[in-house]
Simulated assay, not measured.
Amino acid sequence: MNTAIEDDSTLTDRYQTTVPASIRRALKLKCRDRLHYTVRPNGEVVLSRAGDEPSQDPVVAGFLAFLERDLQAHPENIRPATTSTFAEAERLTSGIEVDLDETLPVDDDDA
């Protein structure tokens, strides 16, 4: 990018915004790509494409470490996923619809 690209967007009541098309094109962003924000001491914000590695959630990391220890200590509890396992999962989740684009409910603590 040889020339500076500047654009504006509006913050919604949920503190969300749409990344302007000019910025999406410049960063080659696609749906579900991650963004990285850097706030400099002077208040300037730098928006960039996030790396491929998502930041590690300490709760998830702890849970995965627990699972690893448990599986190593008790390998006899490991069972293969079978056709009936998947059939049971489908039965348990039948009728549940998920809309990944659905608006999130308002959080009381964000107000």
Results as ranks from 00 to 15, higher is better:
G43L: 04
Y15A: 13
R24W: 03
D101M: 12
S48A: 14
T18G: 00
E90S: 12
T85V: 05
E6L: 08
R24V: 12
G51M: 07
T38C: 10
S48M: 07
E102N: 05
F86L: 15
A61T: 14
S9V: 08
D99M: 01
T17V: 12
E76H: 04
S9I: 06
A61K: 14
Q72V: 03
Y37M: 15
T82V: 01
N77C: 08
A73W: 02
Y37K: 09
N2L: 02
P105W: 05
D52Q: 12
S22A: 07
P58H: 06
P54N: 10
N42R: 04
Y37E: 11
D107Y: 13
R40E: 08
N2H: 11
D33I: 06
T103N: 09
F66V: 01
Q16D: 13
S84R: 14
L29G: 02
S22L: 01
D110G: 10
R69N: 04
E68C: 00
R14K: 15
T18P: 00
L64Y: 04
L35H: 10
M1E: 08
T12D: 15
I23P: 01
V45F: 01
L104S: 11
T3S: 09
T10E: 07
R25P: 02
D52P: 10
M1A: 13
R40H: 09
M1S: 15
R24Q: 13
D13T: 15
A26C: 06
V59N: 07
Y37N: 10
T3L: 01
R69F: 01
R49A: 14
L104Y: 06
L47N: 05
G95K: 10
R69K: 03
T17D: 03
A61E: 14
P20Y: 02
A89V: 15
L47T: 06
D57V: 01
D70G: 00
L104W: 07
R32E: 15
P80K: 06
L47G: 06
V19C: 04
D8E: 10
I96C: 06
I23W: 02
D52I: 07
A26R: 13
A65W: 03
T82S: 14
G43D: 05
P80C: 07
I78C: 06
T10R: 11
Y37Q: 13
T85E: 04
I96Y: 02
L67M: 10
I5E: 05
E44T: 15
N2F: 02
N77P: 00
F66N: 02
L27S: 05
V59A: 15
F63M: 13
K30A: 14
I96D: 00
L100P: 08
R40Y: 05
D33S: 05
D70V: 01
G62D: 12
Q56R: 15
S55N: 11
D108F: 12
V106C: 01
S22V: 13
V60W: 07
A4M: 09
D52R: 13
D8P: 00
G51D: 15
A73K: 00
I23A: 02
E90D: 08
D8Y: 09
R69G: 03
D108T: 12
P75I: 02
P75V: 03
A87M: 12
E88Q: 15
D99C: 04
G43Q: 04
E90W: 09
R40S: 05
E53W: 04
S94A: 12
S84P: 01
